[in-house]
C-alpha cells in the first residue's frame, strides 16, 4: 500500500458509457495484482469528501489502467481529467483472486466488473496460462473486445447485438460445454444480480468460485469499517470466535469465496 502522485496519460471513451484512464504509477504497478483496487482522491476540496475506489484494469510497465462508468459527481469529474493531470492515488488495496490448482479458470465480468477481470485475463495471458474469458453487457456497443470463442473470448449481450444473446450465465454454459470434462473454476466480478446468478449457478454445479464484490467504501484501508459484506457463519468457526458475520470488502475482500457470501437483493 502506498500513496502515489500519478500522472494521467490518457482518458477517453472505451465503449458506450465506458471510460478508460491510463496513469503513470510505478509503485502501484509493481505491487498490483488482479482483483486489487486503488482509491482515488477526486479533488482537494470538501466535496466529494471521500476517495473513489476503482479496480486496476491493466498494468503495462509503469502504467496502469482504470475502466469506469460515470455514476455521479466523482466519476463525472474524473472523466474530465486531461493528460498531465496529477492524481493522488492510494493503492494497491485489498486482496485479489488466488491461484486455483489445476482447474481451468473461467473469468466472468459484467458492468464495471470487467475492469479487474480484464487485468486477470491480461496476467494469465502473459503467463501463457489457459483460461476462458466471458464478458457480459446490455449491447454490443458496451463491449470493447471481439467475440472470439476460438481464442477463449465469449461475449454476451442482453439484446443479442454481439456474441451470445443472454446473460453471462449463458456465456458460462457455452464456455463449459466447449471443455472436455475438464475441471473448471469461476472467477467473477460484476453487479449484484450477476454475482447472485454466478453464486447460484456455481454452487448448484459444485464449481469452485471466487467473486469480487463492489461496496460503498469510506477509506479503502480498513479504518472506517464501512464496507461490510455479510458472510455465512460456519458454526465451528463461530465457536472459535472467528465467525465474523460481517467482513470488510476493502480488507478481507474484495474477492471472497462464493460459498461464504450472503448476497442481498438490490
Amino acid at each position: 500500500m502506498l500513496l502515489e502522485e500519478c500522472e494521467v496519460l490518457s482518458n477517453k471513451t472505451l465503449a458506450s458509457g465506458l471510460y478508460e484512464m491510463k496513469l503513470e504509477g510505478p509503485g502501484i504497478c509493481a505491487q498490483g495484482r488482479p482483483g486489487q483496487f486503488v482509491n482515488i482522491l477526486v479533488n482537494p476540496s470538501d466535496t466529494p469528501l471521500l476517495r473513489r475506489p476503482m479496480s486496476i484494469a491493466h498494468v503495462n510497465g509503469t502504467t496502469f489502467g482504470l475502466i469506469y462508468k460515470v455514476f455521479g459527481q466523482g466519476t463525472r469529474e474524473m472523466s474530465s481529467w486531461q493528460p498531465g493531470h496529477m492524481a493522488d492515488i492510494l493503492g494497491p488495496l485489498g486482496n485479489g483472486w488466488w491461484p486455483t490448482d489445476d482447474r481451468l479458470p473461467l473469468l466472468v465480468g459484467g458492468g464495471v466488473g470487467i475492469a479487474p477481470i480484464n487485468f486477470l485475463h491480461q496476467r494469465l495471458s502473459q503467463a501463457g496460462a489457459p483460461h476462458q474469458l466471458i464478458m457480459g453487457a446490455r449491447s454490443g456497443a458496451e463491449h470493447f473486445l471481439e467475440h472470439d470463442p476460438s481464442a477463449g473470448i465469449t461475449l454476451t449481450t442482453d439484446d443479442g447485438s454481439a456474441g451470445i444473446a443472454g446473460t453471462v450465465i449463458d456465456g458460462l454454459k457455452a464456455a463449459i460445454s466447449r471443455q472436455d470434462n475438464q475441471a473448471v473454476t469461476v472467477l467473477g466480478c460484476g453487479p449484484p444480480g450477476m454475482l447472485r446468478a454466478l453464486q447460484s449457478f456455481t454452487m448448484s454445479h459444485e464449481i469452485p468460485c471466487q467473486l469480487a464484490v463492489e461496496e460503498m467504501m469510506g477509506c479503502g484501508v480498513g479504518i472506517c469499517m464501512g464496507c461490510s459484506v455479510e458472510c455465512r457463519i460456519d458454526a465451528s468457526l463461530a465457536q472459535a470466535g472467528e465467525g465474523r458475520r460481517y467482513r470488510l470488502a476493502c480488507l478481507d475482500g474484495p474477492v471472497f469465496s462464493a460459498g461464504e457470501l450472503v448476497l442481498a437483493r438490490d
Binding site: 470538501d46 466535496t47 466529494p48 469528501l49 471521500l50 461496496e215 460503498m216 467504501m217 469510506g218 472506517c224 469499517m225 464501512g226 464496507c227 461490510s228 459484506v229 455479510e230 465474523r244 458475520r245 460481517y246 442481498a264
Partner: peptide, 17 residues
C-alpha cells in the same frame, strides 16, 4: 458484529455512518 450494510453514505461535505 456491528450493523448490516450499507453502513455509510457520502453527503455534501460529509458522510453518514
Amino acid at each position: 458484529d456491528g450493523h448490516p450494510p450499507p453502513r455509510i453514505c457520502e453527503t455534501p461535505a460529509g458522510m453518514l455512518n
